[in-house]
Design a protein around this nucleic acid. Structure first.
Lengths: 112, 112
DNA sequence: GTGATACTTAAGCATATGCTTAACCAATCA
DNA sequence: TGATTGGTTAAGCATATGCTTAAGTATCAC
């Protein structure tokens, strides 16, 4: 993996915007055209395009154009990158917590 | 939950910076003072303080000052917010995928 | 009290973000 | 062919970010 950190930068940044999360949520339910994506969003089409560019750059979304319609879909693998990072932090945290518990138990034991 | 979206905005934004992720990683291994956190980071102390403020505002980190030392620790519950959001997207995605598979299987069935 | 330590605050600055409006292009459709 | 639909590009602008340096303010150690 080439610079995992840069990928996380982009993915987290992409998800830090409510409009972009709305787009991701819509896309998890299936592929959509750009204008259909824009329809419920109260902003100009170019603004939506820019959000899509951020999402595509992050790898969360992929799109392809057929005729004059561009269809967007999510890339579930990239969402997994986030999941993995969080899970890894959690794992470290829990290990530390278990060790702390074990240490305290031992202390308790010695005080008897 | 009071404006879940605003929380996600802040948490994802907080995690979108490599310095802040480094800080979170350090804190998952246990509480640390501000200067100890800053030591491996190649930037001024005020810069680190600003990153910590972003992390605290997001709820990912909590800190308290005793004497002249401020000790920082992570708030694992907030990391879980991220985990939950991602897991929920994933669940929607998988449901959709299962339905697609079922649909295709049925199509296949009818063509016989 | 004097000095060092551990932050804190304030100000300033370059760059990035999130939008807008105004064209522009390329496939349909009538 | 000429209008419409679906998307794209470009330019501009207000605000937010990520840093810096300089100047505090509380401890704590002697």
């Amino acid at each position: 993996m080439l610079n995992q950190s840069a990928v996380l930068d982009q993915v987290f940044h992409a998800l830090a915007d409510p409009t972009r999360r709305t787009i991701v949520e819509r896309l998890t339910r299936g592929p959509v055209s750009v204008s259909a994506l824009a329809e419920p969003l109260s902003m100009s089409l170019p603004a939506v395009l820019q959000h899509l560019q951020v999402l595509e750059a992050s790898g969360l979304v992929r799109s392809e154009k057929v005729g004059r319609v561009r269809t967007c879909r999510i890339e579930p693998e990239t969402l997994k990158t986030v999941e993995d990072w969080v899970a890894e932090r959690r794992a470290v945290w829990e290990t530390r917590f278990d060790r702390l518990a074990a240490f305290l138990a031992e202390e308790e034991d010695q005080s008897k």
